[in-house]
Nucleic acid binder design. Sequence first.
DNA 1: CCAATATCCTTGATTCACTCAAGCAATAAG
DNA 2: CTTATTGCTTGAGTGAATCAAGGATATTGG
Lengths: 130, 130
Amino acid sequence: MALPNGPVTTSSEAEAVLFDLVDVYDRAYEAAAAELSLSPAQACVLGRLDERRGMGALAEELGCDASNITQIVARLEALGLVTREPNPQDRRARLLTRTPEETRSTTGSQQPSPSPARRSDDSHPTNRTS
Amino acid sequence: MALPNGPVTTSSEAEAVLFDLVDVYDRAYEAAAAELSLSPAQACVLGRLDERRGMGALAEELGCDASNITQIVARLEALGLVTREPNPQDRRARLLTRTPEETRSTTGSQQPSPSPARRSDDSHPTNRTS
DNA sequence: CCAATATCCTTGATTCACTCAAGCAATAAG
DNA sequence: CTTATTGCTTGAGTGAATCAAGGATATTGG
């Protein structure tokens, strides 16, 4: 996992708690992804595929280069977790879809579900019971 | 930078704000480090060298393998930002010290100071005026 | 309609973070 | 003194991320 970027010292208790929270969350996220044999980046992408969408949209939302998405999606596709079909409206573009099997294993198991929903999701890694 | 691990949807406004905060902080941290031509990991290590310490202590605090620290410190040393001297008390161990020049450029400039203090530090990237 | 341009994505090259397995050197334990 | 154990380094390998090019399709403006 990435090294934590928090400060060495904090000026308030609240600040310290906040940094700890982020740290714990990140590690839980990573652990949850690892249980599914996914890297955090893979889980992040996969989690944003609740609905079918294009790669450009993902790249913009995640603030990274399109080629980075290409590469991550390629691995997910190789794992059979995602399909990449040409967009009939624009044949340059590709539409990504989470495969049903993956959907099941990510959302329907006893696992912490690292599916990285960006907002308002009830299955955060932090919800782990372990 | 690492892809953000936040959820796609949040269950409350507060949660959304919190994830955004983390995202903004991380990007600011990275940007601040980049201004000093440092990677986030390098800034993280450098920031924890306010006092001289060993590599093992760093590895444990940062929750990563010692060899990872070795590698990061090697780059910092190559940049002349850190010195690695044998510990007279235990000649297996190495003591890391931030070089004075670096100390100045990291803590005494107009820059956001990515020096990744882990707790209670008044020079967070988030304090940027830009 | 066609040329120029812009868009979407892929490829290739690079760099770095990170992990694991081995190993060396020095200290600690028996 | 022998046998761990500890502290760090090295080497191999994976993956994330960025940049520079390029191919294919769309779009725009003659």
